[in-house]
Design a protein around this nucleic acid. Sequence first.
RNA 1: GCCGGGGUGGGGUAGGUGGUUAUCCUACGGGACUGUGGAUCCCGCGACUCGGGUUCGAAUCUCGGCCCCGGCCCCA
Length: 436
Amino acid sequence: MELSRPRGTRDFLFEEMKQRKQVEATLKKVFETYAYEEIKTPLFENLSLFTMKSGEEIVDQLYNFKDKSDREITLRPELTAPVARLYMNEMQKSPKPIKMYYYGSCFRYERPQKGRYRQFWQFGCEMIGGKTPEADAEIIAMASQSLEELNLQGYEIHVGHLGILRGLLKEADVEGPDQDQIMALIDKGELEELQNYLKTVNIDEDTAHVLLMIIEMKGGSEVLEKVREKVSDKKLVIEALDEFSHLIDTLNDFGIDNIGDHENNNVVINLGIARGLDYYSGMVFEIYVPRLGAQKQICGGGTYNLVEIFGGEKVESTGFAFGFDRLMNALMHDKKDEKPVPTIEVFVAPISDSTRNKSFQIAQQLRKAGIPTEVDLARKKFKKLLSYADRLGANKVILVGERDLKEGNVTIKNMETGKQDSVQADKVLEHILDGR
RNA sequence: GCCGGGGUGGGGUAGGUGGUUAUCCUACGGGACUGUGGAUCCCGCGACUCGGGUUCGAAUCUCGGCCCCGGCCCCA
């Protein structure tokens, strides 16, 4: 049977969509209170947009194809490049900073696993042209508030700064591919390989020692002071440290304090955060939910100069994205047994064929007042109507029967208590609104 | 791309050393029952992931594909 879904894709049914929509709405609300505005870019782009940024190797992870005019097209694998493209195309001369957010699906041709699908959703933002420590602080504060409003339990925001690591390497004359390779090993957490690699590059022992120490450091602002002592003669590192300290101080003003204090806060300084991508330059952060194991990272971001790669005027940007599916995974982990919220509030049940017209009139009246209402369309027999209404989760059932109607009445049954009221047919709306 | 575990009605399952009509729960349809039966009882519907092999006979053994789950690689 060829009616199956393509590998790595999912269908979302009613309950799951309700949950996803609710999370989406919460994130939109938070982002908008930070003055971000929504954008939407195409689901597919020219292949070159992504190869320009990441090289030809990424093609085997893409859903790419030729269109009927032989253009090389690909389904987008991520959203930062399209957003940068949008900026280049139509926003270069807009006043900075530009704050925008997006929500949409991306596609990668990969081996599907838990929390990893071939179509997946990202919810993220970019602030273009606002590279200051205070801009970085605001972004972290917004990510934090998002998770607070979603009531996510047990997450950790790890913040690092690539200027410290890259500065240290540059002072030791390690640049170019060697530097990128070292950053990649740090990102993966391959300590042994990192040590071996350091032996093969021309780096003095003292710097190598300091580097290995730094990437292990986690905690509060005392971490930065410890590093400062070790690198007092290295100008680039000191500059980055100053910037990072400023960021941490500003975070206080944005309402995030006690950094590194696990009892009271979720933000921790982690100088081992490297992010695999070469174009990240300054602050970087990742958010983990440790109980999710292999899929614990639900968010990543930082400061980069992607626009420069595309040949525009140099503009620093800062952005991050939630892996929406993993975020849902983390949220549902906590509240599995919550009972589903019904969509409809009122069910209108015609007891006999002659009362159908009246039933439709009542249903429309309620719907125009914004009350989610279902009315029998299947000509079900009366005895099935109550059971059907029950299954829909209706709070109230309006029984429209001939006997009642002769006196101008209908019966409103409260499905929770079983209590019934006889109500004038033209007063149904008031009665429902009262009982809310 | 690699390693391992799986796939039985719409959902959840039993059976598995080959052998009658493939078990149970639930959901769904109908009836008992033409205004309160949201219950109960009865009846019905509906499945061995696909293809090849072994065999008189395969849900069961075997090989391959597809898909799912877990782990690795990767994760722009």
